[in-house]
């Protein structure tokens, strides 16, 4: 979110309009993600009832005035569960983006600067990347138990290699720059070089990468819940709702449909935002290095 604010403040007074004209993807994506965020924050005030409340009379009820998105297998309100589900998905997306980027940044910087560590770390990263991320997460979760926290950690670990490689390549490029070489020769403390020269240059690509990680984490969480290796079944996550609706899909498709739409909508928003950010940053990033 801080990204959009910096962009807005840098632009002239007519900035918002120009942003929309030049990067409609970014604006549309940001609005879509914003509305998902709003739904997550304002969930209790959006006409929802307790997402866990069971009402046997409303089992498999079709969508209507009473239950907007219908009822599920045990008569819980699919609308309320879908709205509350946005909290889980966004928490996973944000959590994985923050943890994955931070750990990947540490690994990438270490690799970029210390060559003997680089040999070991990059081999480990190659190995990690060869393991399909869903399966890695499945293994981790089956060993640690299903919980929101474990799901976030498991997906984050699978994301580390991509971030680490990105950061490493930026560091390796920057190390050859005269101003960084000069700083090293002048005896500038390593931390200062990192803070002043390295980190600012990783910011733009990492921000774009973060949106892609966010999107893929939301999808991965849904897939994990769908195959029974995600958040505990009682949690109203989109993957769980869809997974429960699976068995009755041909008679009550609404249970799968609405959370499916919410899921696709949110991920689409984040992806559009990422593509927009890439368009905004890319030229400047390229010219800078």
């Amino acid at each position: 979110m801080s990204a959009s604010t910096t962009i807005l403040t840098q632009a002239p007074p007519t900035g918002l309009w120009r942003l929309w004209k030049r990067h409609p993807n970014f604006v549309i994506g940001a609005m879509m993600l914003g509305s998902a965020l709003l739904a997550a924050i304002a969930a209790p005030w959006l006409g929802t009832i307790d997402p866990q409340m069971i009402a046997p009379f409303n089992r498999l009820e079709a969508p209507g005035a009473n239950f907007w998105f219908g009822g599920d297998l045990v008569g819980r309100d699919v609308y309320s569960r879908t709205i509350y589900g946005s909290r889980i998905s966004l928490a996973v997306g944000l959590g994985v983006a923050v943890i994955g980027i931070s750990l990947g940044l540490v690994v990438g910087i270490l690799s970029g600067f210390v060559s003997w560590v680089d040999q070991i770390l990059m081999r480990v990263m190659d190995g990690l990347m060869a393991i399909p991320s869903i399966l890695l997460a499945v293994a981790l979760i089956s060993l640690t138990g299903a919980s929101l926290k474990n799901v976030i950690i498991a997906i984050s670990i699978a994301e580390i290699p991509r971030v680490a490689r990105l950061v490493r390549s930026v560091v390796l490029q920057l190390k050859e720059r005269p101003y960084v070489e000069a700083a090293i020769t002048a005896g500038t403390p390593f931390i200062w070089i990192l803070w002043r020269h390295i980190l600012p240059n990783t910011l733009a690509p990492l921000l774009v990468q973060a949106t892609y990680i966010f999107a893929s984490a939301v999808l991965t969480e849904a897939i994990l819940s769908f195959i029974g290796a995600g958040t505990p079944p009682s949690t109203p996550s989109w993957g769980n709702i869809i997974s429960e609706g699976r068995t009755v899909f041909s008679i009550a498709p609404h249970i799968v449909l609405f959370p499916g739409i919410a899921l696709s909508f949110t991920v689409l928003g984040v992806n559009l935002m990422g593509d927009g950010l890439r368009d905004i940053f890319d030229p400047r990033y390229v010219s800078r290095t």
């Binding site: 869809i242 899909f249 991920v267």
Partner: peptide, 12 residues
């Protein structure tokens, strides 16, 4: 869209 729609939603 292909990046955003999970495969099970498209399947259904």
């Amino acid at each position: 869209l292909g990046f955003s729609v999970p495969v099970f939603v498209l399947s259904y």
